Computed example of a mutant assay.
Amino acid sequence: MTADIATDETQRLIASNKVEGTAVYNREGEKLGSIYNFMVDKESGKVEYAVLQFGGFLGLGSDYYPLPWDVLTYDVSVGGYAVGLDKAVLEKAPRYAASEEPAFDRDYGRQVYGYYGMNYPF
């Protein structure tokens, strides 16, 4: 008889469906939005972006902000991700509307990572 094993979350790993919808807070504990989805490099399997859904009301009229995965830190005390960004910085960040999804090519990646002062590693 084998023990039941949770397949959606372990000490180190979490299933993608549990990440989507997770709240994102700034360091002051203010909720900025939630993870809409994340983009994974097909070859390396590494997460390139977490896409933050921010603004609007009840998801209507909100924009999508690709964040380099490394700007997120999981904070167990709030049960969500924390970022060292305030709303003013986020409001000027690269973003797109649902009807205008970007190409997510290398040029776009350099733009997003550069905004956050990071080198584009892909």
Rank of each mutant, 00 (worst) to 15 (best):
G21M: 07
G21F: 04
T22D: 10
A23C: 07
A23Q: 06
V24N: 01
Y25C: 04
Y25A: 02
N26S: 04
N26E: 06
R27E: 14
E28D: 12
E28W: 03
G29N: 01
G29R: 00
K31L: 12
K31E: 14
K31Q: 14
L32G: 04
S34C: 10
F38G: 04
F38E: 08
V40R: 09
V40T: 15
D41Y: 10
D41S: 11
D41Q: 11
D41M: 09
G45W: 09
K46G: 12
K46E: 14
V47N: 08
V47Y: 02
V47G: 06
Y49G: 05
A50W: 02
V51S: 05
V51K: 00
L52N: 08
F54C: 12
F54Q: 14
F54M: 15
G55I: 04
G56C: 05
G56P: 04
F57I: 15
F57R: 14
F57P: 08
G59C: 04
S62M: 07
Y64T: 03
Y64S: 05
Y65D: 07
P66F: 05
P66E: 09
P66V: 05
L67V: 03
L67Q: 01
P68H: 01
W69S: 12
W69C: 07
D70V: 15
D70W: 03
V71S: 02
L72F: 01
T73D: 09
Y74V: 00
Y74M: 02
Y74H: 06
D75G: 03
V76S: 12
S77K: 12
S77G: 10
V78Y: 03
G79W: 06
G79P: 07
G79Q: 07
Y81N: 00
A82P: 02
V83P: 01
V83L: 03
G84E: 13
L85E: 05
L85P: 03
D86Y: 00
D86Q: 05
K87T: 14
K87S: 14
A88F: 09
L90E: 04
L90P: 03
L90R: 01
E91P: 06
E91M: 10
E91F: 09
A93R: 05
P94Q: 12
R95F: 11
Y96K: 03
Y96I: 06
A97G: 09
A97H: 15
A97C: 09
A97R: 15
A98W: 08
A98D: 11
A98G: 14
A98E: 11
S99V: 10
S99T: 14
S99F: 12
E100F: 10
E100M: 11
